[in-house]
């Protein structure tokens, strides 16, 4: 013990330990960020996440309004409530950012992701893959005698489930777009 009665090895008194004031629960949030479609804007958003140590679970970006040159970035992130608030405030500071929407708290929303899965095999496995694809409403977008490429759209969980089923049936490769999301209603 020092003169300051700080217990040796205790990290509670760290100047950088922000925990005591804030909740510890990790939350998953989907953010929609409207940005000017200009050079480097994606680097600014990603750079913010890496520089400040925030998580990115999924990220998609494309121009959605060609006339005014606006792009929509959908980013799925996890963090404590305080960190989520920081992420939104920090995103709002970026000059080409017009708007930040937290779809997770702003009412109901829909999330969809598209994936392409290549499954190679023959015989029963091939038939089973086709049958499961039908159940999951996945389309065959390419086929050879040894393989299929399935296209599936849905929530990330649905795609995870489909990929898990395809693995023993000869899953070779997966490409996923990441989540796109919109709020429900008008």
């Amino acid at each position: 013990m020092s003169a300051l009665q700080i217990k040796k090895g205790s990290s509670k008194h760290s100047a950088y330990n922000l925990r005591p004031n804030f909740s510890d629960t990790q939350e998953r949030h989907t953010l929609a960020v409207l940005v000017d479609n200009e050079a480097g804007v994606l680097a600014r958003v990603i750079g913010l996440f890496s520089a400040r140590g925030y998580n990115i679970e999924s990220l998609t970006v494309a121009e959605v309004d060609h006339a005014s040159g606006l792009s929509r970035i959908t980013v799925v992130t996890t963090g404590t409530p305080q960190v989520i608030e920081q992420i939104k405030a920090q995103l709002g500071r970026i000059v080409p950012v017009h708007d930040v929407h937290d779809l997770t708290v702003e009412g109901p929303s829909v999330e969809r992701e598209l994936a392409l899965l290549k499954v190679a095999g023959d015989g029963d496995k091939r038939v089973e893959a086709l049958r499961l694809a039908d159940i999951f409403r996945a389309n065959v977008v390419d086929s050879t005698l040894q393989s299929f490429v399935f296209e599936i759209t849905g929530t990330p969980e649905k795609i995870d489930a489909f990929a898990d089923l395809m693995r023993p049936l000869g899953l070779v490769e997966v490409a996923r777009t990441g989540v796109a999301a919109l709020s429900r209603g008008a």
């Binding site: 013990m1 020092s2 003169a3 300051l4 040796k8 090895g9 990290s11 008194h13 760290s14 100047a15």
Partner: peptide, 28 residues
């Protein structure tokens, strides 16, 4: 205010400095 200490644990002069900063304060 040594690293890792609150506002009311200030060091005011040479006499108060001995062992003022614990090992965990030293990383700050």
């Amino acid at each position: 205010i040594p690293s890792g200490a609150p506002h009311n644990k200030m060091l005011l002069g040479e006499a108060s400095t001995k062992d003022a900063i614990g090992s965990s304060g030293a990383v700050l």
